[in-house]
Amino acid sequence: MKIRDGQFVFHESLNAAFLEELFEGDTIYAETVFEDFLRDLPAYWEKVQASYQNKNMSLLGTNIHTCKTLFGYVGFTDLQELCQEFENKCGLNTAEALQTDFGVLTRKKQEAQKIIENEYNRLKKYNEG
């Protein structure tokens, strides 16, 4: 574990208290996890988009479930909840009925990805420092 005088402060959109408990101050491991998130999310999201376009609601729910778990590991607990709500709706609705929800989720995912990219770069600099 890397111990530094100035504690790393996570972006305000992230659940900092949870991340502190999850990583226990190990910013090196946090950097690894954020890097893995950025590596894995695009491929998982492609599957989300494909299942939405194919209107395969069961598969869409499963793919969102995977992304939901990933969001949790980088502290997006609110986005995790949004994914859970969407996942629940997949079993009850058509792709057309979920168009607006899917649009919101896609936008939030893009924002989240940008935030994690920035956080990853900040963590990298912090750990090098």
């Binding site: 998130f37 894995d40 995977t66």
Partner: peptide, 11 residues
């Protein structure tokens, strides 16, 4: 099936 989750467990 999620690598990040498995890595956490291993750690």
């Amino acid at each position: 099936d999620i690598q990040i989750a498995a890595d956490f467990l291993k750690k």
